[in-house]
Design a protein around this nucleic acid. Structure first.
Lengths: 145, 145
DNA sequence: TGATTGTTGACTTGTTCCGTTAACTTTCTG
DNA sequence: CAGAAAGTTAACGGAACAAGTCAACAATCA
């Protein structure tokens, strides 16, 4: 019941890119250095993100990665889904018919509702929200210093 | 991001026992046969449940398992916690200090809130609730038949 | 005493997590 | 056009976890 390191790193990376001007190319090594991710692993993490249209890539000299969408259009759910696929909680939510107890299982609906809540919560948090939260945290830290 | 088979089976087993009168001993093989769980695996699943005081056991002839609490005192969260430990969503929620980014991470609070929501939802569902839901499902099925 | 039950710990098999490695392609610069 | 600087892809590998199994043991009852 935990997100993977890949999801955590992906969130960090997107948040880092969201701090640069929109569509600016950032260097992989800059992401890795600041966010504590190994280059090889970041490469792997970025591939599904590219396929999902969250980030873009530029090859060759001066190449790198950039956000393919504006931060307000990217949610935590988008990133997690790119890394881990659908959030399901229990196998019985996978496909109609997978659960032979489908029609009589009194827990089924609880899983479905809880899943809905999670999806709403995660899709409601965009990286613009996170940037704003970040600024508020830093303001509070300075005030208390 | 899924519950384990062990949790699923544990929930099934408790639900089954909750249908018998309180503290009645039920046979392992009856649980296994009706709930599609292998005896050896159920044995393993039941041990942490006993330690958590959710179910009790009786050795010897005529022995078996029984609910150590009333169904209304057992929640889905109790069973899941017995099987899987704490629900944490991200390692940064584990222990104070585990996350070096603790003070500046803008996502931290989202994890914490989402976790709270899940805990509330799961602790709010008792096995009395599930039994009632079950009866409603069966009533609806009969009406539509 | 012996059959019937639960207890415990070690074991197995398969999958997922968390990466690494190496060969390859694209792009820019001189 | 050569070569350096990037990203791409597929395969590999160790560790941990999931999902069970097994066998020796302890307790209980008839």
């Amino acid at each position: 019941m935990q997100i993977t390191r890949a999801s955590e790193y992906a969130i960090r990376a997107v948040l880092f890119m969201a701090r640069s001007p929109y569509r600016d190319v950032v260097l992989k090594k800059d992401i890795c250095r600041t966010q504590d991710i190994t280059p090889a692993f970041l490469t792997k993490i970025f591939q599904p993100m590219i396929k999902h249209g969250i980030i873009g890539s530029q090859r060759g000299v001066g190449g790198g990665f950039f956000l393919a969408k504006r931060p307000e259009e990217i949610s935590l759910l988008d990133v997690i889904r790119a890394q881990e696929g659908e959030i399901l909680l229990n196998t019985c939510l996978e496909e109609k018919g997978t659960c032979s107890r489908d029609m009589i299982c009194p827990v089924h609906n609880t899983w479905r509702e809880l899943r809905e809540t999670m999806l709403e919560s995660l899709s409601g948090k965009t990286f613009t929200d996170l940037l704003q939260t970040e600024q508020e945290i830093q303001k509070n830290l300075q005030q208390n210093a």
